[in-house]
Design a protein around this nucleic acid. Structure first.
Lengths: 206, 206
DNA sequence: TTTGGCCTCCTGTCACCGTCAAGCTTATAG
DNA sequence: CTATAAGCTTGACGGTGACAGGAGGCCAAA
């Protein structure tokens, strides 16, 4: 971007430039509007240049998804650690807050990350996808319902992930809170997360 | 499809044929693999014929989405009425079962229906989208927590929809139950729905 | 310092796509 | 029977992903 003038035949950091441009492009034009040639244009290289860094368009998209999951995991970690001093249930809510904050800030990328099947985007070799999310969730659930049976823990994980994922997805699609202000919407999200956390806590002691 | 031989210059029912072909194509090739020309090919007409029935490719996709919501609503209605004799909470679970059954049977279409924002698909004029789902859910919640305040009812609706939507979405993406058999996966879904229904019922009497 | 190899990028091309324009064929209303 | 409209076809245009082949620039070995 900023190197537009002072560059010679070689770009210098085309791979990163393509990722940056691609990420912005996805949010601007949507998943179907994403174009390899437009990425190249924004990086100020020829239309065939990206091929030397990404085998195909899907390869670039897979990289965007990969980085998305890394960022999502980081956001969840940050937000749950912010509530580290409080009780475990609060950290579970924090996990959900981080999840939703990332999705709200990167709506199309988030949808892409969870539409790989529908978009036929194959994960790259050694790509762990949402595995870190599963681990993060399991670790906190350990503190909330540590001594429960495996079956209960799995049920708690299902419920927790499903609730946070479903809520923010429906918000992004405008199915929930389209007319609400940002503040009201956040309150609805927090209320949903709180109800979820309470249910999870109850699962341990029936 | 079956009329391939005995048709003249006019197809007879091209619009329906395109919808049928399009629906199958979406599931086969994914959202991004969907092609207007391939739809025309499968309906055995020229590449420009669809233009007389759909203004654009997005127009055909919007029609697929429209019919998808109609079917989803029907599936939810059927499944919740199956439990009509039981208590309201069972009907709420039934609603979720119908929701998930449709999604499992039409995974890509379902993803498309809830990726309109990310795919920049504008709903057509007079298209009510998921409005009927909202109504269906509100009606059943009336029976479960009829006398509650509006705020509580909204919270219950948020939680119920988010849970069922989140769970099946994560299943379709392979994030939940990838290694489970169909029977085990259904049990996990039912357990999640049951926990959700219990929480909703508890919201009414705190 | 020179030189060879290799990585990076470019131009050109191909098949395929969505959309538009113009014309041909058939059904139907008058 | 005929005019008119509706349904379908052919053809073209610009844009796209991918591939082939060539040119430019960097760097290490000589």
């Amino acid at each position: 971007m900023t190197r537009s003038k002072a560059r010679g035949y070689h770009h210098g950091d085309l791979r990163e430039a393509l990722v940056t441009a691609g990420r912005k492009l996805v949010e601007e034009k949507g998943i179907r509007g994403f174009t390899l040639r437009e990425c190249a244009r924004r990086a100020e290289v020829s239309h065939a240049a990206p091929a030397h860094h990404f085998a195909s368009m899907d390869d670039l998209l897979a990289e965007l998804v990969r980085r998305g999951f890394a960022e999502l995991t980081a956001a969840m970690t940050t937000e749950s650690e912010r509530a580290a001093a409080e009780e475990p249930a609060a950290r579970l809510v924090g996990l959900g807050v981080g999840y939703m904050a990332f999705a709200a800030a990167n709506p199309t990328l988030f949808q892409l990350m969870f539409s790989r099947e529908a978009n036929h985007i194959e994960p790259k070799e050694g790509d762990e996808g949402a595995e870190s999310i599963r681990r993060l969730l399991a670790a906190i659930l350990d503190d909330v319902i540590g001594d429960a049976a495996d079956e209960v823990r799995q049920q708690a994980a299902d419920l927790a992930w499903a609730t946070m994922h479903g809520f923010i997805t429906l918000v992004l699609e405008g199915e929930i809170g389209r007319r609400d202000s940002s503040k009201v919407l956040k309150a609805r999200g927090l209320a949903t997360l709180a109800a979820m956390a309470e249910t999870v806590a109850r699962l341990a002691r029936p």
